[in-house]
Design a protein around this nucleic acid. Structure first.
Lengths: 121, 121
DNA sequence: CGTATATTCAACCAATCGGTTGACGATTGC
DNA sequence: GCAATCGTCAACCGATTGGTTGAATATACG
């Protein structure tokens, strides 16, 4: 559906949300841990996670008082398929680590942030 | 760069703009002709084309008093590469006509609009 | 039980978005 | 030259976005 593409692309348009997705590529995470490397409030991250969930790019499962966030690549796949209509984009075969790097390198800012180097107060 | 992805994904998040892109898949078009199937004003379409141009998803070349719009698939490709970090999306080998259909079918509304059937006011 | 932790909710804010209208600047053609 | 065509610009509008803060809700722990 077109509306799915609306929400998926809109979700991907924000660098914070893309950073969150690449963090979740490593492992499932609790909301608080997702929020940790960012300078913004927990509530803001919670909203971002809501946007990602609505776009079905992630799923959230509550276990006890902790809500675990998990990457759901299918939604991204359908967007990717739509894009493929515009050219034969070579699939660039990557192994797990290279996939991670590919994402990290395209998205520069969040890496610095996630690294937690020197985030000014 | 991350900012490129911002503008590309944001541009793709709007159904009118995706419809424009799939129209341009068939052929280059003048701004007026792009606007024709839509119910909104020419100025609105002009703005949409501006967003697409800024994202480098299209280019615009003025020839006489007509401005021609041309699809530029490279920007979409870089977004597509970013996405591939999240999974091995099979490349779905399509020929030219099938590529066009793939795009059209994913994006339903615009087709109806382009068809000009009955878009309520 | 009481308190700390995890997360969301609600209200608010400034900025951006997607659309409108009317005026305007170029270019074309009778 | 003058009128029609092509396209953008500027001002405006309501809705949405991305952030804040403070309070509220659950769950866990000691």
């Amino acid at each position: 559906m077109a509306q799915d593409l609306d929400t998926v692309f809109a979700a991907l348009a924000d660098p914070t949300r893309r950073a969150i997705l690449s963090m979740l590529l490593e492992d499932d995470m609790a909301v608080t841990d997702v929020a940790d490397p960012f300078e913004m409030s927990l509530a803001a991250i919670s909203k971002h996670l809501g946007v990602l969930t609505k776009a079905r790019l992630i799923s959230q499962e509550r276990r006890g008082r902790v809500k675990w966030c998990k990457l759901e690549p299918d939604a991204m796949k359908s967007a990717s398929v739509w894009m493929q209509g515009f050219g034969q984009f070579e699939p660039v075969h990557l192994d797990a680590f290279e996939r991670f790097l590919a994402v990290e390198l395209q998205d520069e800012d969040p890496v610095t942030q996630i690294d937690g180097s020197d985030v000014s107060g």
